[in-house]
Each structure stands twice: as C-alpha cells, then as structure tokens.
Design a protein around this nucleic acid. Structure first.
Lengths: 126, 126
DNA sequence: TAGAACCCTGGAGTGCACTCCAAGCAAGTA
DNA sequence: TACTTGCTTGGAGTGCACTCCAGGGTTCTA
C-alpha cells in the first residue's frame, strides 16, 4: 500500500470532471461527497476514490435523479452494508424513471420527425 | 362551416390537458398561446385549435425544449409562412438534442443495471 | 334573487440547482 | 520578500418554470 497516493486540488478536479469549484464545494456542503481530505492548512485534497465517486454521481445526474435523492443515496452508502436493500430500491426506481423518460423522448422524437417532414425538412435517421 | 363550434372554459382545459389554470394563463401571458378568444365578459373560451396547439406544446415540453424556445417557435408560427425555414431549424436542433439525451439516458441505464446487479437486484430487461 | 362556484388581473412567492461575492488566508515564483 | 495566483468560508444572488395570492367581477343552480 503506497503512502504517496495521488491527491488533487479543487482546480484539478474542476478540470477533470467539468464541475465548477463552486459546485464541488456545494456537493460537499450538502452531503453528496464523503468528507474530502484536507491539507495541513485546510485546503481540499481529492483522492482517486473521490474522482470515482464524482463520476458515478455524474451518471446519476445524467439520469435526471434529483439532488435530494442523490444525497439520500450518499447517506445510505455512508451507513454501510445494511442499507443495500434500500440502495437497490432507489436505483431501481430511478431505472424505471429513466426507462419511462426514454419512452417519452422517443415518442416526442416521432412527433418532431413528422413535423420536420411537414416543413420539407431533411430529417436524418442517423 | 358551423357557427356553434365547441368552446371550453379554463377549467375544462385544465381537466383535458392536465395543465393548471395558472399555467394556462401564464402560457398566454408569455406568448406561448395564440391569443385565446374571450366571452363578452372577458373570460377565456378555448377552441379545439387551442387544445390541439396545447397538445403540440406538450410534446415540445416533453423534449426538454426550454420555454424561451417554445415562445420563439410560437412567434414564428404567428409571423406566417415565410418563417418555415427557421421553424424547421429550431425543430431540427431540438431533434438533435433529444437524440443526444436518449443516448445519454441509455448509457446511464447501463450503469444503473450494472450497479443494481452488483446489489443482487432483479434488474429486468423489460 | 341569493349563494356557491368559477374566472379575472398584476404581482409576489416557491423550489431547484447551481453560481457568485466579499474578505481573508495559503502557496508558488522572481 | 513581494507579488500573483489559488483556496477558504457563510451567505446572497440567479434563472427557470411554474405556483399562488388578494381583491374583485361572473355564471350557474335552487
């Protein structure tokens, strides 16, 4: 186990994740991040595990999951293995929402294609 | 051409569209509705054409299009046939956004399934 | 004709997810 | 050491899409 694992400043994390420093601090404040390590003077030093978590959070965001639900999920993770069932439920509910949203968007896409064709447009199937 | 075409009060439209009366008035105020007909005393009387427009607006909403863009589209419709090209562009841009969003959601769905499987969950493919 | 239910307006309020600000301390470079 | 750039905090501000309120007029039913 190495004692010199990589630690990132907040601006490095901003560059890697695309999340602003403001948002990163806000995520920590609302409990969406496990507590981030600090330097001797109190500056944040993110780990690879933090980056990994942030990537997963990004996927949850992409699903349209609310920040409140993401915070709930993060709490469950902190509480340990006995919350597996509730975590799975949260994820399955989100999965159903995503599937429904895809169906809704697919339907809207059809309406759009129809309308574009009506305007003599070049609707591409690709 | 009948002189007794159906005219709906705002609460009837609320019941038919699921949009609140507040939202219907707000849509009109911001220019998202062609001007709705009024009774002699000033109460709104929606037509079937209004309902039809509202249904289309609902589809645009479902695409995730912003209200500002929907208002822009409504303006173009009011301006007449010479705005066909711009309308088609707006719709095609929206179409690309929707396709990208579907791809993003599909990707997130995969991540979710992977995670759910990890929790020993019953991820259904249906 | 009385009462209940419905509709009108302009403007204020809400919830979400950021986004920014001020004031001050910390880190890196000439 | 001086200077610039970066990081800290609590709290305020922003933009979007509604959502509601007060005060008053209208329509329907008994």
């Amino acid at each position: 186990m190495s004692l010199t694992q990589t630690r990132y400043t907040i601006s490095e994390v901003e560059a890697r994740t695309g999340l602003s420093q403001h948002t990163l601090r806000w995520y920590e404040r609302i409990g969406l991040m496990p507590h981030v390590d600090r330097s001797h003077s109190g500056q944040r030093r993110f780990s690879d595990a933090d980056l990994h978590w942030l990537a997963f959070v990004g996927k949850l965001r992409a699903t349209g999951m609310s920040v409140a639900d993401m915070v709930r999920y993060a709490e469950l993770v902190r509480e340990g293995a006995h919350t597996f069932a509730e975590r799975r439920e949260l994820l399955e509910r989100t999965r159903r929402d995503v599937a429904a949203r895809i169906a809704e968007l697919t339907d809207a896409l059809g309406v759009l294609d129809h309308k574009i064709a009506h305007y003599g447009g070049k609707a591409r199937s690709t």
